[in-house]
Design a protein around this nucleic acid. Structure first.
Length: 109
DNA sequence: GGAATGACATTTA
DNA sequence: CTAAATGCCATTC
């Protein structure tokens, strides 16, 4: 691979994503769009890709990230698991979609 | 250095 | 509202 060596003090794209993820309060959710927007980029899909790496699902609540249309999206451990975790935190879902998703949506403002 | 991939988004039909 | 097609960005092979 053409890794350019790690001399960057700034966090990598995925690292930044994780940092933002950890800021999300319990019972709230966010979207890939909002996340990317917070990072001043439009790499919505890249954000998801960062989650796919999922180096530390323990520290990072990846399950609190959903699609901008309110759909659950995907999850490394499976959609079922993601929904279950969300429900456990008080986020109601229905047919793979977030209920009152706009209310629970956490923007990094 | 280039092609392929993905936990997406937006627009159009 | 649902479904399909197109675009986008960063990362990996």
């Amino acid at each position: 691979m053409k890794s350019k060596n790690i001399k960057n003090n700034h966090l990598s794209f995925n690292e930044q994503c994780y940092a933002l993820l950890m800021k999300i309060p319990k019972g709230k959710i966010t979207t890939y769009k909002a996340l990317a927007n917070a990072l001043n980029t439009k790499a919505y899909q890249a954000v998801g890709n960062a989650m796919a790496n999922n180096p530390n699902p323990i520290n990072v609540p990846c399950h609190r990230v959903v699609n901008s249309n309110g759909a659950i999206g995907n999850y490394a451990f499976g959609i079922e698991r993601k929904i279950d975790l969300l429900e456990s935190e008080g986020v109601s879902t229905e047919n793979g979609k977030i209920v009152a998703f706009k209310k629970l949506l956490f923007t990094f403002n």
